[in-house]
């Protein structure tokens, strides 16, 4: 299956990963191969593409739900300590203006 450099760039844009042109080229070939291999499998097994196919890997039959009782995590400081940039208990990120997303 033919994949364009633009497809790879778009995927990289969505996945938020910087790629240089060389990487785009090399990943493009891998993506083409991997996609084509899969399409070949479907063809040789006589399976149609099916967007709606609904299958769950887990064989659990019953949904196990959690009761609405608080289970407070005490060591929130440990969570915050892992952050690369924190100010007064808030995680900091580069400025985002309201309305931009």
């Amino acid at each position: 299956m033919k994949i364009e450099n633009e497809d790879v760039r778009k995927a990289a844009e969505i996945a938020k990963i910087y790629l240089n042109n060389e990487e785009v080229e090399s990943y493009k070939i891998d993506l083409e191969d991997m996609t084509q291999e899969f399409l070949d499998v479907l063809q040789s097994l006589g399976i149609d593409l099916d967007e709606k196919f609904d299958f769950t890997q887990s064989s659990s039959k019953r949904t196990v739900l959690r009761n609405d009782n608080p289970d407070v995590f005490e060591e929130t400081d440990k969570i915050i300590k892992n952050a690369p940039s924190v100010k007064e208990g808030l995680f900091t990120v580069p400025t985002i203006l309201k309305g931009e997303n």
Partner: peptide
């Protein structure tokens, strides 16, 4: 998100 003018937003 809290937005400030000083180059940072806070979460």
């Amino acid at each position: 998100l809290f937005h400030t003018a000083e180059g940072h937003s806070f979460v």
